[in-house]
Design a protein around this nucleic acid. Sequence first.
DNA 1: CAAGATGATTGTCG
DNA 2: CGACAATCATCTTG
Length: 394
Amino acid sequence: MSFSICVAQCTDSLAATMDDQARIMQSIGGVSLAGHSVQGGMALPPPHGHDGSDGDGRKQDIGDILHQIMTITDQSLDEAQAKKHGLNCHRMKPALFSVLCEIKEKTGLSIRGSQEEDPPDPQLMRLDNMLLAEGVAGPEKGGGSAAAAAAAAAASGAAGDNSIEHSDYRAKLTQIRQIYHTELEKYEQACNEFTTHVMNLLREQSRTRPISPKEIERMVGIIHRKFSSIQMQLKQSTCEAVMILRSRFLDARRKRRNFSKQATEILNEYFYSHLSNPYPSEEAKEELAKKCSITVSQVSNWFGNKRIRYKKNIGKFQEEANLYAAKTAVNAAHAAAAAVQNSQANSPTTPNSGFQMKDEEFQLDSAESKNTLLTNMFTGGYSAPCYQSDGRIQ
DNA sequence: CAAGATGATTGTCG
DNA sequence: CGACAATCATCTTG
């Protein structure tokens, strides 16, 4: 491509200027070609310029040059070094080199033109953002994420299962993070090593063929782009791993555990004792959450489910309603009895005796009263006795 | 194992 | 944003 142009330009311009130099340039054109054609490989030194610098060598067949190129790998390293040295010490070398540089400068425009400003890859940015958001890419795990984890643990309260799953999740995330960072470091190191190697190679070559610092820069850019595309693959697979982990974690959250018996008791007690208005306030929810060792949102879920399920099939819950109404009544009775005993020490009362009626009122509900309860529920017509969990009447 | 119970999620509405 | 309704996914029970 550009070499033919190069050679053509070379011959043209030189023919116009100096005949002698034109001759040399023709041979250098061959040299230059040779140099470029082996660029992809070991970039061995071009053939010695001896034959070409002679007047006779000018007629040298291009086949010979090609032959030299083809057999260049057969030469021993010393031989090659010797030839290279010979070329470097050639008397015309500096002049030729500067001419080559000039020509290259002219063609350089096209090279530079093709080198576009690479815009930040949107996909890469997305991946980076996600890794950052997931705490994989961000600052080292010692600081921020640990604090965040602690906050998360605190938010989940005393719920043992939850924090266990949290720590499990975080442990896996940390593992991913470690792998990601070691891999990234490895890639970076390899990239740097390779870049240094190529740069050294190019610098070395720049003694025999015109290589501008910009070209080296460009080559470095190409290498970096190659490596960053590898890094992108790493980022992508890391993202995938995190996504899988996340979905598993969410599944794990879905994989629910039933609340403890005590927790259900407490919740039911509150529900049935506030049957006329089973909507605990935020504070009440917090208190219930604390008592039941669950989160506030779990309390909300529970009440949401309970309300809707109760409403859907009140008959089914009637027994339960009676049971808890009785229970709260008994609790209240105990509390009242205790209060009475405290205030009137010398008036022995049989426990519950004074409230038996009330108990029976709930336990031995007639069908009629049940129906009333059913129909009035959620209409505000029925008002169940409201006890607080400690037995006091609200 | 099927059916019912139950905690969680999702979408809609005011 | 909270409540509701429908639904999902799992747990429990017989």
